[in-house]
Structure formats: structure tokens, C-alpha cells
């Protein structure tokens, strides 16, 4: 069973966001594999252990993304593909999905896995769009996956509960926290990773022109939130503090 994992490199969730010249400043920021994509990698590796086959990690991004792909290879994925092109500075989700679709089309696959959301732009779009572009069924936010032959049974999170679905593969599934516990890359894995293939492709390699991936959305204008400030602290005995708080929530904040 061959599996493609769509990976995005994101800022560490601890990262402080700084704007420089109206852009998000990546200087000195720790970058990591998007945490939800780690669940996708782990699930792919578990399936590989069960059914055999190869796991290919595919990503769109700059030079730095190679380190994240290498980490995925150290975890046990077999090869990586990075689409790295200078024209990709300001692409939107539509374009990334189209590029991934072209890249994935060159790889034999039975299943595509991705994280349900990227913790940077939080848009939750690319994997679902990729499914549409490849004309594959998709299920978002899965918590459990069983595969038998060409049939997948998945449990996905819905508001207020869960839902069990059956679908044929190939398909695109996005991973929610709870699907598994991602492994750490082992020391042996790290040593082996550098010998594995990491293919770097340009748009031209995929037969895409810059015009083909012109954004459907405007370039975002970034701003920082006005920081919240410390408010009132209650005083007195615990009972007095509770009473004061209840009163303030009712009369001042008017939220109770």
C-alpha cells in the first residue's frame, strides 16, 4: 500500500509573531512539522508496517522545508518531494492544492493523508481541495482508520459526537488529534534519513506556469491584535471574592 502524506512546515506553536514591513517575520522562529501532519505521518507509517508499500512525503515551500521532510524520513517515511519555486511567495490554498495535485499525480498512491488543519494560517483547506482536484473522496478530521482491501472505514469527529463512514480508496483523509501518538524519529532513523531521496521540483518540472496558479484571493493584510491587559483582581475572603466576581459579571460585564 503506497501512501502520500501532505506535509506543511509551520512555526512552532510557541513562536511569537512579529510583523516586519507588513509581513510575518520568520527570523529566528523555530519551524516544525505542522503538529496535525505528524498524526498523518504516524498513521501512514502504521499502515506501511501492516501492509507494506512506501510512504512519500510531499510539500510545497522553501528551502527550510527540507529539514521537516528529513524529519519525516527519519520517522520512517521512504522519500520526499518538495515543490520549491521562487514564484510561490504568495500563493493561496487553491494554488497549493493544484500544485500538490500535480506533484502527487507523479507518485503511485492508494491513500493520501494530511493534517486536518495547519496551525499557522489555520485555513483547513488544502487537503480537501487536493481531494477535489484529484477527484477523490475525502473525509476530514478522522479519529480512527481501518483499511480492508480497497475499503476504508473511518471514524471522524463531528460537532457533538462522532460519525462512522465507509469509503473506497484511494481517498484523502485528514487527521485529528487522537488518531494516534506520533513516534519520535529514532537515532537510527535520523542516520538513515540523509540517504533517502528528497526530490526538489520547480513549477516548470510539473508543467505549471505562474499564471496557472494565480491567487484567487487577495494577498493578506496582516495585523497584530491589541494585547489584552490585566483587569481587576478580587479581594477579601474567598466568599467575598466569589460574590464580588458574580456581581461584576452581572452588572459590569453583563455576561451572566
Amino acid at each position: 500500500m503506497n501512501i502520500v502524506v501532505s506535509l506543511k512546515q509551520t512555526f512552532d506553536t510557541e513562536a511569537k509573531i512579529v510583523l516586519t514591513g507588513g509581513k510575518i517575520d520568520a527570523t529566528g522562529v523555530n519551524v516544525v512539522i505542522n503538529p496535525y501532519d505528524e498524526f498523518a505521518i504516524e498513521e501512514a507509517l502504521k499502515l506501511k508496517e501492516k501492509f507494506g508499500g512506501e510512504v512519500t512525503v510531499v510539500s510545497v515551500g522553501g528551502d527550510k522545508v527540507e529539514a521537516s521532510i528529513r524529519t519525516a524520513l527519519a520517522m520512517g517515511c521512504d522519500q520526499g518531494v518538495l515543490v520549491n519555486d521562487p514564484t510561490l511567495e504568495n500563493v493561496d490554498e487553491w494554488a497549493v492544492a493544484e500544485i500538490l495535485a500535480k506533484a502527487v499525480a507523479q507518485i503511485p498512491y492508494d491513500l493520501i493523508l494530511a493534517g486536518r488543519i495547519a496551525v499557522d494560517d489555520g485555513s483547513s483547506q488544502v487537503a480537501v481541495r487536493l481531494a477535489d482536484s484529484l477527484n477523490l473522496p475525502s473525509v476530514s478530521s478522522i479519529l480512527k482508520l481501518d483499511i480492508e482491501g480497497d475499503k476504508a472505514t473511518v471514524v471522524r469527529e463531528i460537532d457533538g459526537g462522532t460519525e462512522t463512514l465507509e469509503l473506497s480508496i484511494p481517498a484523502v483523509l485528514t487527521a485529528q488529534k487522537g488518531l494516534n501518538e506520533p513516534r519520535y524519529p529514532s537515532m537510527m532513523g535520523i542516520m538513515k534519513a540523509k540517504k533517502k531521496e528528497l526530490k526538489v521540483l520547480t513549477l516548470a518540472d510539473l508543467g505549471i506556469s505562474a499564471a496557472d496558479v494565480a491567487s484567487k484571493m487577495s494577498a493578506p493584510k496582516f495585523s497584530l491584535p491589541t494585547p489584552r491587559t490585566a483587569g481587576k483582581k478580587m479581594s477579601g475572603e474567598p466568599a467575598e471574592q466569589a460574590a464580588e466576581l458574580a456581581k461584576l459579571l452581572r452588572e459590569e460585564a453583563k455576561v451572566i
Binding site: 529539514a67 528529513r70 524529519t71 527519519a74 519520535y184 524519529p185 529514532s186 537515532m187 535520523i190 542516520m191 534519513a193 540523509k194
Partner: peptide, 10 residues
């Protein structure tokens, strides 16, 4: 080197 960086992170 890159291996050391990855090892440290792991």
C-alpha cells in the same frame, strides 16, 4: 550539522 540538529530536537 543537520543530523545533530535533528537529534537534539528529537
Amino acid at each position: 550539522n543537520d543530523d545533530h540538529i535533528m537529534m537534539r530536537k528529537m
